[in-house]
Structure formats: C-alpha cells, structure tokens
Amino acid sequence: MLAIKNIECVRGERRLFSDLSFEAASHTLLEVRGPNGSGKTSLLRNLCGLLPPAAGIIEWRGNNIHMFADEYRSELAFLGHLSGVKDELTASENLRMSSVAAGLGASPDQIHAALVHFGLRDFRDSLCKALSQGQRRRVALARLCLSAARSLWILDEPFTALDAAALVVIKDLLESHLETGGTVVLTTHQEVAIAARVTRRVDLGQ
C-alpha cells in the first residue's frame, strides 16, 4: 500500500501543494487531476522517489521509500513525460535494453509478444527515429507488459498521442493489472473509463 503523509512540494519559488495526504491500496486506481501547472507531474515524481518532497513522508508497505529505495524500485514501474526511447536503437532493442536496465527479465519471446501486443510487429526492427510520436509512446508502454510483477505502476499521461486501438490495449493492460492486485497511479487529461475495484481521485490546484 502506498501512503502519502502531509507532503509538500516546492519547485523554485512556488509552493505547488502542501499538506497533501492520501492512500492507495492494491486493486486501486488513483487518478491525479488538476489544471496545468498544478503540480501533477511533480507529485508523480515525488511518488516514484525521483523528487524528494519538501516536507512529509511517502511510505510503501509501511516503509519510507527513501530509506528502502532499492526495495521500492524493484516493485515500481514508472512512465514519465519522456518515453525513455532512444532514437538510435530499434524498437525491440529499446524494449529489451530498457527492461534489462530496469531489472526486468526480458526473453526474446516476451519482447516479441509485448511489441506485437502493442501493434508494433512490423516495426520491431525499425530505428525509433523513424517511428511516429504515437509509435514511440507504444514502445515505451510495451515495457508495462513485462512489468506485471511490479505492483505499483506510476504513469504520467499514458494516453497522450495514442490512437483508439492503442488506447484499448493500454486500458486492458491497466485493468488486468488492477484486477490481479496491482496499484495504478496516473494523470490524464482524457476521459478514459478504466474499471477498477477502487477508484480514487486526487484533485490538485484547488
């Protein structure tokens, strides 16, 4: 369970939010909402441990995520604004290398299946600089197929630049992860209905 206790976030001179507390257990979808500049991305970076909050603590399974950083990271899958897809590598190289670097097992079969799942069968050996924005996003999202064992998924705007077909794929992926006991935290500007046992919303910028 992810527990956020009275955290505060300051970027530069601006206090984005303060005294923010919430929890997300397994089977929970947590949607972070708010206008541009309200601190959604900063909150997500707080949650995944990239950005230490100015005050307050974040706990995962009762442990402070900064004290037990390695354990936390081995249960976490994060997808940020930036896809982490390298132009010079092919789609399958990208997926394999980013998964192995993230400590995920990635057999050739799994890589192939994940790319096929996201409709990239014909592009798996194309250099990513030749791919469209949406296709690169799919390469990045395909890593989630290999991250089923990671309980906590934190996704910053996962639906941007995706077409209807890819939206269905990612929606199914998120729903099955939630159904098998995972936790998903995401921000989005699109209304995508995702079925979950528990859906919570955090509104920033009020």
Binding site: D70, F78, L82, G84, V85, K86, S98, A101, G103
Partner: peptide
C-alpha cells in the same frame, strides 16, 4: 545529454540496480 533528454536517465535512476554501477 541524450539520456537526459529522452528520459532514459530517469529510468536508470529508478532501476533497482545501484546507480553508481550503472
């Protein structure tokens, strides 16, 4: 620079492996 620009670097920072060795 390129890892920083395309987000690979933050993925490395979130890897459970020691960043010092990476």
């Amino acid at each position: 620079a390129s890892d920083y620009g395309d987000g690979t670097l933050e993925q490395l920072a979130l890897s459970p492996h020691p960043l010092t060795l990476l």
